[in-house]
Amino acid sequence: MMIDREARKLLFETVAQRVIASAEELTDLDRAIGDGDHGVNMRRGFEAVLAAVDELSAKNLGESLKGVGTTLVMKVGGASGPLYGTLFMSLGKTLDDEVTCERVADAFATAIDAVRARGKSDVGQKTMLDVLFPVLAVLREGGTELPVRLKAVAKAASEETIPMRAIRGRASFLGERSVGHMDPGARSSALIVDAVVDVMEGLA
């Protein structure tokens, strides 16, 4: 599948709009177990992406993903800036305009490793990784009805962070008190996966 300029623009716009529309929900989740700025930070970052979307999507997929990542790093402010920035920048380093499910899975695996290193975190610690890893596993499986399964696993995986105890990030200060709340980073990751899948499904 070819991700041309129009597709890139639609992809970045859709992801940005969905994140911006959910800013309040993310902030509420973060208020429960963090410092309550995740929604505000993500909105600021993705508003900057929206403002520059024509310029960003004019470059090839690799360069434009790097551009999105750099924008998030510079504009988000919280720890989610470097984390999502690293995710997009790493994807940009490995992806070309012509994508296949396998290539995306390989690039995604490398990008998740980069996020894991940046956050010094791992699966099971109540973070965005708890959504990204299960999504990668389904992407690797491939097969029929992939879009539906990807969205389902992202949603289920974000909900599975509710009973987890935070070990990394601000929520870790709360220890046991972090149990019972969905991780805001897991939720924003699920939102982004959902948006990407919807766009890709429309293109297919």
């Binding site: 410092d35 700025d37 505000v40 930070n41 600021r44 790093v73 510079m74 504009k75 988000v76 402010g77 919280g78 800036g81 470097p82």
Partner: peptide, 12 residues
Amino acid sequence: GDPGGGLGTSVE
């Protein structure tokens, strides 16, 4: 402070 002037940090 973050890039919006609130509490937070900014890479820039």
